[in-house]
């Protein structure tokens, strides 16, 4: 699992990346009440808006950590947005992307580096 400074995580299997937000981000957001996930076929560049997550408190953008084409959004979050809080780094994933360049994933932080980064916040 790789991480960004915007608190997204990426797991790469073959050329398909699964993307979500970290447990830290989910905790900061508080109770998630609505998630808007991307449609299949959408092309995204690293840094583009990928999804929107709304907690009781506010709406937040989720950015694409890498470039590629959306294969699917996690439709299950439509009826159960609280999954983002319950299993942020598992069933609460947001989207799967067919990655253009797997080396973009390698360039992201590993867990140790991400935890060091959290220590600086």
């Amino acid at each position: 699992m790789r991480f960004t400074k915007d608190h997204e995580w990426v797991v790469l299997e073959g050329d398909v990346a699964t993307i979500g937000i970290t447990a830290y981000a989910a905790d900061q957001l508080g109770d998630v009440v609505f998630v808007e996930t991307p449609e299949p076929g959408k092309a995204v560049k690293a840094g583009d808006n990928l999804a929107v997550v709304e907690s009781v408190k506010a709406a937040s953008d989720v950015y694409a950590p890498i470039s590629g084409e959306v294969i699917e959004g996690n439709a299950a979050l439509g009826d159960a947005p609280e999954t983002v809080n319950d299993q942020p780094e598992g069933a609460g994933w947001f989207a799967r992307i067919k990655v253009a360049d797997p080396s973009e994933v390698e360039a992201l932080m590993d867990r140790a580096a991400y935890e060091d980064f959290l220590g600086t916040l």
Partner: peptide, 10 residues
């Protein structure tokens, strides 16, 4: 305090 440990919903 905007919230305590329980969070807004609870």
């Amino acid at each position: 305090p905007v919230q305590y440990k329980d969070g807004v919903l609870k």
